[in-house]
Amino acid sequence: MKKSHTGKIKYNKEIAKDTFKLVISSDVKEIEAGQFVSVYCENKTLRRPFSVADFENGEITVLYKLKGEGTNYIKNLKENENIDFLAPLGNKFTKEGFKSALLIGAGIGIAPMLFLKKELNKFGIKNHLISGFKDTKEVVEGSNQVVIGGSVLDEIENVVEKIKPDIIYSCGPSIVLKLVSEFGVKHNIKTQIAMEKVMACGIGVCRGCIIELKNGENASVCKDGPVFFGNEIKW
């Protein structure tokens, strides 16, 4: 499968404070929740990886937070301009076999959760998405429950009690993912988390984005991940 693509920018605007939505129309045939794209930035050595927030008929949606030179370059790309990206990269969330799912998106980590929620709905899997933001200006729509200022983790126990999930999915800062994984282990609920790491190749060859697993092996976030079962990771 050819993985390098030139797409056209259909939409690239700020939808919340420092948070942008980018829609690319492309010839990509298939992307599932958890997978990501990596966008070429002319002024940078490394491409920038972004989780996919939606995909339909070749149209790829990503959400990104302004961070530095890479995202500032992407921000300035105009509608109808070409955009060079690699896709689909990485693995997918596991959906098969689950009946009820809790989704937790912290900050921009909401992006893959939105895509996953849509897929779960299609699969008829009951789900509940909690997202957390620093303040109201940063809120991205689409969750069942929004936490402002506090920690998304404070809400877990209540929701778990209510919806009795057999899987918890999460994406966000590493500390949130660690705590979600620990919660899962403690309450005997499976967790799947999407990790983030600085990457170079995006396809598993350069070994730059390695994390260590509990079984002692190295895993690349870009190819073996970005989705891992929380209890597999050596935190």
């Binding site: 940078k44 050595t45 490394l46 600085v198 990457m199 170079a200 350069c206 070994r207 730059g208 984005c209 390695i210 260590e212 190295n218």
Partner: peptide, 23 residues
């Protein structure tokens, strides 16, 4: 070889630094 633990990449102006550790 397992290579180095910790951050392995650092982007620089016009380049990058790697410390993969020959994994």
């Amino acid at each position: 070889k397992k290579g180095n633990s910790g951050e392995r990449l650092f982007e620089t102006y016009g380049g990058m630094i790697n410390r993969i550790g020959l994994e």
